[in-house]
Design a protein around this nucleic acid. Structure first.
Lengths: 348, 348
DNA sequence: CTCGCGCACGTGACCGATCGCATCCGCATG
DNA sequence: CATGCGGATGCGATCGGTCACGTGCGCGAG
């Protein structure tokens, strides 16, 4: 009752290689997997046969027999926010260097249900490990309260070093930026915060707050936004323009900073002459904004590398050591300067 | 000689479900796969058992038996160019909606060897179909000359409609932009081209050239660039600033346009007063550049959707119908205006 | 009343690889 | 010369499903 021998794509099997090389299938397996106890002459013969037949190991069969899929799952929010894509590429690259493929699942909504669904999809696809790129406050509880049937590493921002999360010190970045502004002579610094629910928003706000507190400066309410887009920044900028006492503002990312500057400039307020603006992320275009944007540089690519490295170790059952926190760097360009003009203007 | 019954992760098997439901494994399979010939009562019992055991079908076993991995491969260049990430997300989303996962492979170098390697990696991973996001001229020959053991759809720019490539009409976009500039009253339009080797560069140049020819305008040599970054644009902008006869320039993407504007503005040349600038892509920040950038909008997300749709059809052996070409839309903002001032300046 | 047909469900082979063991061989040892 | 030993290689079971077929059942037609 033999059915069609080779239904689709005349795939070469291990047994075919074995026949050609005149050995058993087991021996081919040994060669393929690089086991040591194979004679040099036989190994050579097998390798020649593999090359000749253009043999590729059947992935599914291998996965079934070993119970490892050599596949890493990545769940990412679908918003095209600056850092995400960079992290994603970093992950894909590093995974491949380690012989792993990556499966991408995007989550439209960022609530815990969405994350659960994505995670379930992934475990159903039998990934060996999962990297969650959803640095949102709602994500952490879900992830932590999960049955760890599979290794999970998450990306966080502003959290202390952890053994299961790669983190960036966004708070320090915000401190650096705030300090820079204060050192320039500004009385205090205002803040255009990121949208609620994002760890980056909270961490950056916290850093801003702490530096203000350290220097005993007055803290003004932050300008709130709905997303990370330049649109949101623009709206905040309109509000900022109406308050002539504001001379320095730390914006939670570069795109929004662009919007802020646009709103300000349109209203005849000079940056940095009247108001100094600092962004966050250092997207590649930031240098060419008008004026060149002073911002905080974050290495998103490194996040991907670290995450893969960590999840692989986790799978290997290595002891849980802390992952180094990625450090931000302040990049000073032309959107910040000493205060002066504007207060004079408001005084007139 | 039974080895450890359940080595890792006490995974639930179909047979376990079958036992609990008091049916055969085959019946469980029928339920799982939604076959019709199962009694309502039995189906219900099985579904209850599945839920109770939190059963997940073993992906590898399924793939092995069916010879389909339900996995789509995506090869993408690793450069964080604007459109790529958007297309990628579009692909991931649409794939998942169809029950497919996506495996991402990035290629550092863009030569044919790199593409081959990526493709080999993917077929070794037994993907059912491949989407190649490498709209470079070097890619097409490699892809076409390939043994089509697996369905491949590629992303192109400026190519005519094809049944195996989703394409954007970049040439038309460039024509539209050039026409806009000419209609504004400019004698001719200069061009900052994209880096060599990219289909987008060629298509956009071709569109620009054709519109110029149609209107019998003088064609000036284009400004060449090395990559798509604002850096490159800036360098081109410096050169443009030195030629006072230039009043209108079409830049091959938004990031470079930003650089051009920066260079111009720094040198006291007003945009659009002295020089009109048009970009390409309509990245989300473009509207908030200073001035708001007139540009050509391209729907990259749609590319992802179409590509997945097509590759799935291809796998299903459907007849090769043409994929609709994605149409560009000119978005007029504030970086373009009628000419005048600058020539006056140069005449003085 | 019996035969045949369609539906529901079970049985056994098979997908392509890995793994534990048995086997075979050659060489050094007592 | 018999024995031991270790490296190279083959055998059969197994991973968790799917598929083609076989079987038992109920029901309408002849």
């Amino acid at each position: 009752m033999a059915r069609e021998p080779r239904p689709r794509g005349q795939s070469v099997r291990m047994i075919d290689v074995a026949k050609l090389a005149g050995v058993s299938q087991q021996t081919v397996s040994r060669v393929v997997n690089g086991h040591s106890n194979v004679g040099a002459e036989v190994r050579d013969r097998v390798e020649r046969a593999i090359a000749q037949l253009r043999y590729n190991r059947n992935w599914a069969a291998h996965a079934l027999a070993t119970n490892r899929s050599m596949n890493l799952g990545v769940v990412s929010h679908s918003l095209p926010v600056h850092g995400s894509a960079l992290v994603l590429f970093g992950v894909a690259e590093e995974a491949r260097r380690n012989g792993y493929t990556t499966s991408l699942v995007t989550i439209p909504r960022i609530d815990s249900a969405g994350i659960r669904t994505a995670l379930d999809t992934l475990v159903a696809d039998a990934v060996d490990g999962i990297i969650v790129l959803a640095p949102m406050t709602a994500a952490a509880p879900v992830l932590l309260g999960l049955d760890p049937e599979v290794a999970i590493v998450r990306f966080e921002q502003g959290s202390p070093a952890s053994s299961t999360a790669v983190s960036m010190d966004d708070a320090l970045g915000a401190q650096l930026a705030t300090r820079h502004l204060l050192d320039l002579g500004h009385d205090t610094v205002w803040h255009v915060g990121g949208p609620p629910g994002w760890m980056a928003s909270e961490a950056r706000r916290a850093g801003w707050l702490s530096e203000l507190a350290r220097r005993h400066r007055t803290v003004n309410p932050e300008f709130c936004t709905e997303d990370w887009t330049a649109d949101s920044g623009y709206r905040a900028g309109v509000a900022i323009a109406e308050d002539p006492t504001i001379t320095a503002v730390l914006v939670a990312n570069d795109a929004m900073a662009l919007g802020v500057i646009k709103a300000l400039t349109e209203r005849g307020i000079d940056v940095p002459g009247d108001v100094s603006v600092v962004g966050f992320d250092d997207m590649s275009e930031a240098r060419y904004f008008q004026p060149g944007l002073t911002t905080v540089r974050l290495d998103f690519n490194e996040v991907g590398r670290l995450a893969v490295d960590r999840v692989l170790r986790l799978m290997g059952g290595e002891p849980a050591e802390l992952i180094p926190v990625i450090q931000p760097v302040l990049v000073v360009r032309d959107s910040t300067a000493a205060p002066g003009q504007r207060r004079a203007r408001s005084a007139s």
